[in-house]
Design a binder for these strands. Structure first.
Lengths: 365, 365
DNA sequence: CTGAAAGCGCTTACAG
DNA sequence: CTGAAAGCGCTTACAG
């Protein structure tokens, strides 16, 4: 593979000059520039990014550590992150923690060893050692989706509280009174917040959230199934199961189906995180949709700001309720608060435009 | 950040000695080793992978260029690739081509600039310039899922011909005679092969595949929708639509639903590539499942072999038919050839073990 | 067993 | 505008 020396020789200049034209340095004669460019072309020369990184101390690479690639929500997040990063001249290396703190640490370590310029993390837990260390050491970093309280890093996330209130109002309007939740890990902010938002919304309607109606899941399908089975075994099973993510909703569907029960007649189901397939499940699943693409893009911009020494903006975007049929047919008129996006067509999200929504709330970290 | 010099100073040895203990070189005194290790510990030293790569000319990194991350099939493939790579001491950088040759080339270029040790590709097309160039230049490379004829690189893929025959037999047994296919891009091997296999299977039953029943899709949901609408507009619409991937099947579901038609009563649907959600769609979708995890792992092993100078084994694994209800209720007994995996429970794949299946056919490239 | 030194492929002050 | 030279953080023959 041709190196910079070969190009210099071919062009009849020094490697310094080659480097200058390659990096757009102004002081190069037109003649030299032409010859260098020709040589580059002739040899098919491509600069060695490893050597350049060592010298310049920057890799133009971002690390993204997510909790679970198999979760469509994170897949979409990863996709939008890569897009925005590419637009800004960065590559991204994805590390999949699979909801395991040890794997998360493995990826953080590997990424840091490779001297990535900045780190985007959706923490699996309260903070694995290496991750906390990275934050303390001043590595440019921003949290997406999930974050760790007390760590001074910008947070880009969505606030589902209003949507959860809409959901509970919708359920209450449908006559449901015994509502249960499949919670995510308490070690995650999203795990906690969604339960809190749900509980508060219930309180608003004079309803309680008994411990028996809080099932501990781990954001994976199997746990959704297990928890739902537990709910169904209760002397007084809930009328509604709200899964805190889409994979646990899949598990809940598995469990309900295995018992031969019908949704929503026998039990209603709703989920946090919307996905295209929810339009086509039996029945279509009522869900809370996040502006995932916007989150990914905002997170990259915040991180690139930090890398550039600027403050880096924390962003909170609203989620929204998408009503479908899994909680029961809403009465023709008179919903307590008009549910959003309840079009009869209800097109699958895959066909929609990528610009999800606009921010509702912003604050500088 | 502490460098090797700091460690050397702290331990009272030369950097050469530090390097030796870090790399497990045998000729180091026990005493020196102890002191170095203590210094490493004390300083929290981590070797700079960039510098090491420059020196050793290897990055311990694999590049994976896939056609579409948002496709659950490729997500799973990427996951298994990363797992196996990690087990073998490699990191992987994923490039998402989004079915665009120009983006594919962008990622190949970026990956090569970073001097990855080997490249795993599922080509989007007949071969973008930079990719062909990489193959010609002798970059260790292997194709997964899709490949390019005439390029001398090991291929790890699955053969769906037998499963497609099973599918057609199943459909024929159900009384269907007008069968249509939503094809993938003709520039991809999987795009072509699935149509060919379908046509041949039809011929086996004395059925033809008229041009009007071959819709040109691009493996994306929108194309599945568009093609299906075209089918439904035909004077004599097909009785069955077979989508060549799961995203186009999603689009087909959208289209059928928008027309207010029922599956399988009004039109039957089957898909290539199985996903957990197919169990819960309305109705559950009959699909052809690939041993995705096995493919990813075999591909990594083949690539690591090539990197190590060994030949690198091409592998072909069989896909299998999973019968559900989207093509009609099979007659209680007497299926023409017993469809595989038609358990009444039909558990969602998410709960199954990761070891998919064993190879049926192997050949050394 | 150990250290001084060269060198991986670049970039960038420093002179001229 | 241009080139010689230093140096980024490592690894590895080469002497000793």
């Amino acid at each position: 593979m041709a190196g910079i020396k070969d190009v210099a020789a071919e062009a009849g200049v020094s490697v310094a000059t080659v480097s200058r034209v390659l990096n757009g340095h102004p002081s190069v004669s037109a003649d030299a520039r032409t010859r260098v460019l020709a040589a580059v072309q002739a040899l098919g020369y491509r600069p060695n990014a490893v050597a350049r990184s060592l010298r310049t101390d920057q890799t133009r690479t971002l690390g993204l550590v997510i909790s679970d690639v198999m979760n469509p929500y994170f897949t979409e997040l990863a996709r939008s992150v890569e897009e925005e990063a590419r637009a800004l001249g960065y590559s991204v290396i994805i590390g999949n923690a699979d909801e395991r703190p040890d794997l998360q640490d493995h990826h953080v370590t590997t990424l840091l060893d490779r001297r990535i310029d900045g780190l985007l993390v959706s923490p699996t837990d309260g903070g694995s050692p290496r991750m906390l260390e990275a934050a303390r050491a001043g590595t440019p970093m921003v949290f997406v989706d999930r974050w760790i309280p007390g760590v001074d890093v910008p947070v880009v996330r969505s606030d589902g509280a209003a949507a959860v209130r809409d959901l509970v109002a919708h359920l209450h309007g449908l006559g449901h009174r015994r509502l249960a939740i499949i919670a995510g890990p308490a070690a995650t902010t999203t795990g906690r917040e969604r339960v809190d938002a749900f509980r508060e919304a219930l309180t608003g309607h004079g309803l309680a959230l008994p411990d028996a109606y809080i099932g501990q899941g781990d954001f994976q399908a199997a746990s959704g199934r297990r928890v739902t089975e537990g709910f169904l075994d209760l002397p007084e099973p809930p009328e509604v199961v709200f899964a805190a993510d889409n994979l646990m909703a899949l598990g809940a569907l598995d469990a309900v189906r295995a018992r031969g029960l019908r949704i929503p007649e026998d039990i209603a189901l709703a989920a946090f995180d919307d996905i295209p397939w929810f339009t086509h499940t039996d029945p279509p699943v009522t869900a809370i949709a996040q502006p995932t693409g916007d989150l990914g893009r905002a997170a990259v911009r915040a991180l690139v700001d930090r890398i550039g020494g600027r403050p880096g903006e924390s962003v909170t975007l609203p989620a929204r309720l998408v009503v479908r049929r899994s909680c029961g047919e809403p009465p023709a008129a008179a919903a307590p608060r008009p549910p959003v996006n309840q079009s009869p067509k209800d097109q699958s999200p895959v066909n929609q435009s990528p610009k999800d929504q606009s921010p509702v709330q912003r604050s500088t970290s």
